[in-house]
Design a protein around this nucleic acid. Structure first.
Lengths: 110, 110
DNA sequence: TAGAATACCTCGCGGCACAAGGTATGTCAA
DNA sequence: TTGACATACCTTGTGCCGCGAGGTATTCTA
């Protein structure tokens, strides 16, 4: 009856989704995520950076240095083809998950 | 910039939502949850029972014994007024969360 | 010129979902 | 009638995720 694990790791989904739009550096991602989610997601640095390093290690993203007009060096991340594949999977998983929750919520109204 | 914690505890939401429809016992909730979610949620007993005990301890649900026609004794849970309040809050939180994820996903398409 | 903002990083903790195991009763087929 | 399976409840231990907290360094601004 009970078998599969189902982890909620929407953080990866969100990060990959951001990078699907354009290359970004860490700090920017935190700010953008907050903005696009209307302040719902205030991702912590202690959360984001380990995720980025993990994604890079697995080949889902690639990092490169770039100096900003301000003179500061930033570390940009670029999503790879492999990363896009993962994103697709996670999008689908999210939609399924989201739909399932809503189904349960609506069922209890009847 | 970064301040609030945001835990993903949709399990409570799902459990309370089930009980909002009718009183249920643990095993039944697992089966119902799987059915209503089209097998997406196969909640484990090691997850459910501690949650139920916690909800009961905090006064969100009340438990009572009832003997089934089969002769088996079952432990039914009933949602309290306080529990309904919590459910409302969590529903709202879920909608906000869900909307935020979708907003981020859609933003990356542009 | 001090503090805020920018920008990156890591270590350790707490809590959650689960695996795994235990107990017990009812049902049904061989 | 017995053994396997479904029903029904429970707890302990573990792994991992997200975060708190702290660290470093540079640039901007009042």
């Amino acid at each position: 009856m009970l078998k599969k694990k189902q982890n909620i790791e929407h953080t990866q989904l969100l990060v990959l989704s951001l990078l699907a739009g354009e290359d970004m550096y860490g700090y920017q991602m935190i700010v953008e995520l907050a903005r696009r989610s209307d302040r719902t997601f205030e991702m912590k640095e202690g959360t984001l950076y380990p995720i980025l390093h993990g994604l890079e290690k697995e080949g889902y993203v690639e990092a490169y240095q770039q100096t900003a007009p301000t003179g500061r060096v930033r570390k940009y991340y670029h999503i790879t083809r492999k990363g896009s594949g993962l994103l697709s999977e996670e999008k689908e998983a999210w939609q399924r998950y989201c739909g399932a929750v809503n189904a349960v919520l609506e069922a209890s109204l009847a």
